[in-house]
Design a binder for these strands. Structure first.
Lengths: 236, 236
DNA sequence: CACAAGAGAGAGCACTGCTCTTGCGAAGGG
DNA sequence: CCCTTCGCAAGAGCAGTGCTCTCTCTTGTG
């Protein structure tokens, strides 16, 4: 224990957090330049003028460094989506929905390797060590929030639901979005996943020779995604 | 050149193709067990009782081995989808659509690492060296084929299209599916990408604590995906 | 049958993640 | 104010990786 929290914090601890940040920065640079597969602890150490073994004082393993980067990436994407949403907070529901979708796409195009890190192949065997869960949920929760507002304004109509999906829909609503009609949940969750299908395909080259007018294509797809999720009204 | 094609083929060439196949088999086993990141040339060689340098007679680099596995994976998925489709060749369009979707999902669940290899993060920097294109297109073309049949039966209604997307839609129809109404193309392409969003999210753990009744959820989502793509009629 | 071409072995280079030991210097208690 | 502890970095080293080069021997083929 060192003194009170968020106070002086001890010169030693301060240095530690600084070095930790420097390591993450260098790692993020390498990640952006070369991708997660080529991220090397030794190269990071070299860039910082330290020796590789010294890094292990800050991150017990390469995977832990990656986990830190993953959480940061989720947060960065979540924040980008949230600020984009805030910028159109007064618009109609569908407009806000597409704003979030486009923010996700733009962030992904701007940070392809970080996007790959969080929505591509899970890197080490697999992971997602629970600590990443809140950060990972931000975009999904944001979309659900848009839907909830739409519901309150009467701009959400749940599509018909097959009876065998009713209990699952009830559970989803109870767990994830109390206040939303259960029948709307499956479509919303599906739209969330489908959004990342669109983004991932564009980013990972699947649209090569298939979709040329990417911007217009995505904008249209986002609107239709919102409609499929139950949003009504104009996309002004 | 050795003799006529597909004839005796020379005992030497035969041995070569056999060893090549054995290498790919061993590599595929390792891929399925450990994932692409942990696939090691030396381990493959060990399993085959050869020395690592001998492998380079057959694959000039690790990435070339991976590329071969990628093509095989695309083909395996494509074949699975095609046989599943053939099995319901007489059913209504929407039923055939969902059959393909479910085949994709089941193949992915059965071959997670191979799915990750082709639809996850591009492994080495990036690749897709054109040789993979035909294999990679099979599922997409199959879905377009379902749509074309539906169109001929009058079971496809193109959704409204914003005017700025019209030229792109024309190009898509001309390049990918002559015989389909251009206005249907963007929705079909989007549905194709969105299908893999659903599958990828389930496979990569994004549905943890979110979707529990995966089977029912996906079946419903696939139907709605087909409807969003323009398919009408029953999903018998 | 002679011989070149093909295939495998082995050593070695540069690199990786990670561990363990050693020395140093600053932080903090008596 | 001294002295001890503790955090930090360095270095050597281990096991593993992809890949190259050279050498040898087998084997199919003209």
């Amino acid at each position: 224990m060192t003194s009170s929290p968020s106070a002086p914090l001890g010169a030693r601890a301060r240095a530690r957090t600084e070095v930790t940040a420097a390591i993450k920065d260098a790692a993020r640079r390498q990640l952006a330049a070369e991708g997660a597969a080529r991220l090397s602890l030794r190269a990071v150490a070299r860039e910082l003028g330290m020796v590789s073994s010294a890094l292990y004082r800050y991150f017990p393993s390469r995977d832990d460094l990656l986990t830190a980067l993953i959480t940061d990436a989720y947060d960065s994407l979540g924040e980008a989506a949230e600020t984009a949403h805030a910028r159109v907070a007064d618009a109609a529901s569908l407009r806000r929905w597409t704003a979030v979708c486009e923010a996700v796409r733009h962030w992904a195009l701007a940070h392809p390797h970080e996007y790959a890190l969080i929505y591509g192949t899970p890197v080490p065997g697999y992971s997602a060590p629970d600590a990443t869960v809140p950060a990972a949920s931000r975009v999904g929760l944001l979309l659900l929030g848009v839907a909830r507002d739409a519901h309150e304004r009467g701009e959400l109509t749940a599509p018909p639901l097959p009876p065998e999906l009713a209990p699952e829909a009830d559970r989803m609503a109870a767990d994830l979005a109390p206040g939303l009609p259960p029948a709307a949940m499956p479509s919303l969750i599906a739209a969330w996943a489908q959004l990342f299908g669109l983004v991932g395909f564009e980013l990972f080259g699947q649209f090569e020779r298939v979709v040329e007018a990417r911007e217009e294509f995505f904008r249209h797809a986002a609107v239709r995604l919102g409609r499929a999720a139950g949003l009504t009204g104009e996309d002004t």
